Amino acid sequence: MEGAFKGFGPKAIPFLKALDFHQSREWFLENRDLFEQELRDPFGDLVDTLTERFAKADLGLRGDRKKSLFRINRDVRFAKDKRPYNRHLSAILSPDGTKMEQGVFYVHIGLERCFADIAWWQPEPALLLAMRKAIAAKPDRFRALVAALKKNRLELETEGRMKRTPRGFEHISDADLVAAIRHRHFVVQHVIDPAGIHTADLVDELVDFTLRAKPLLDWGRAIEGKVLAG
């Protein structure tokens, strides 16, 4: 039944554990109803409910219960790891509702961990350069962003940060700005307690996180707007 999110089923994580153990199309097809009832359909409800709540909060993020979810199947064509199924299920809500935008909300329910991101992940070169130039040219604005995130109990993730300063920014000497310019992504993350995925309270938790991450959305969107206008 489609509708408001009421929580993932009690067998959602056990299903992922069993799927990861079997890694078999035959097993998956035999248990497809369980996947749909415990994971996929509730995830669709979560996307719909968050879309409604994000609209009310004017966050500029939306999704579609079918198009926003990533497939449970892995693309193994060019992978050394030939296991056919992921150990997680995930979805993206974005400014236009597609998976092609930047400045997105990403939610991940998996065996290793459950989390949500507000992310500018692998932005195209022109946008990444513009973000780095914005840090260098308007350091006070970037530091205000960092301070706002810290006040909201968030900080930029450092995963994938370059070890060396990119060409053209060698003149930057302030350690905090150098570290920021070395970012390949601009992401803040909220860790979800797996025990908390089974109730409707997860929606409030994720809306609260996104509101706390809004300074990053605003900063990135302002820069992106200038890139697109140019």
Rank of each mutant, 00 (worst) to 15 (best):
A55I: 03
A55C: 05
D58V: 10
G60I: 12
L61S: 05
R62I: 07
R62L: 03
R62D: 05
G63L: 01
D64K: 00
D64M: 03
D64Q: 07
R65E: 14
K66W: 09
S68C: 12
R71L: 06
R71F: 06
R74Q: 10
R74G: 08
D75T: 10
D75K: 15
D75Y: 10
V76F: 08
V76T: 15
V76A: 05
D81P: 06
K82F: 13
K82N: 05
K82L: 09
K82E: 14
R83S: 12
Y85C: 01
N86T: 07
R87H: 04
R87C: 04
L89Y: 05
L89D: 00
S94P: 01
S94Q: 06
S94H: 03
D96H: 08
F105I: 07
V107F: 10
V107S: 04
V107W: 00
V107C: 15
V107H: 06
H108W: 07
I109M: 14
I109C: 07
I109Y: 03
G110L: 11
L111D: 09
E112Q: 14
C114I: 01
I118K: 00
W121D: 00
W121F: 14
Q122G: 11
E124G: 12
L129R: 15
A130H: 06
R132N: 09
A134L: 05
I135N: 01
A136P: 00
A137S: 15
A137I: 04
A137W: 12
A137L: 12
R143S: 09
A144E: 13
